[in-house]
Amino acid sequence: MIHLENISKRYQVGDVSVSALDNVSLTVEKGEFVVVLGPSGSGKTTMLNVIGALDVPTEGQVYINGDRLPLVSKQTDRFKFRRETVSFIFQSFNLFPSLTALENVQLVLDMADAPDAREKAIEVLNDVGLGERINHFPHELSGGEQQRVAIARALATGNPVLLADEPTGELDFRTGVQILDLLRRQAEAGKTVLVVTHNREISRVADRVVELSSGHIISDGAPRGGKVSIAELSW
């Protein structure tokens, strides 16, 4: 499904070249729930951005479903890729403050010119447990509810890959667990889910944990101590 081949990403900061990713290769299969783990500055968000075509690697190739991801040449292709293949969930939600929960979700459906956009948006919001809050504006929702709207928005696209950057970073434990549960269920439903976090506890519920440090993958496999159920988490 996702294949990174010798990806490097270097930033120029003044006269200094900083390497965020250094010759990283990775393959993620369809339906996998992968947690990318690492401390701040390890390159995990950069990896997510490269996969989501938000950022362009300095070297290497990205393949999605066997197709090479358009990198630099055509910006419109990258927009199309993001519109049709990946969906993002951000740490700080990035909801549109002037739109209600329903409209935030409906927006991506409208953009895709989907029929019955409103009904579908309501359905997805019901799925994430926000059926009663659809007409609330973001500032009227709690952090967890806002993140669920963000997940609903990502799900509504119907795109096969979900990319979540620290989705529980701004949430309390209880809410964070709910969000993780929601994401894991998406993987179970066949979507490929990549979650970036620095929280090792979260990685325990993943199918697979990819650990990064200083731009290198230092481990890749099942969670240490084995996969646990969400109910067993604590942080």
């Binding site: 938000l54 910006q75 993001r82 519109r83 993002f88 990035n94």
Partner: peptide, 10 residues
Amino acid sequence: ATLFAFGVPV
């Protein structure tokens, strides 16, 4: 940027 992230063109 969020719109761009969801593939909304410039």
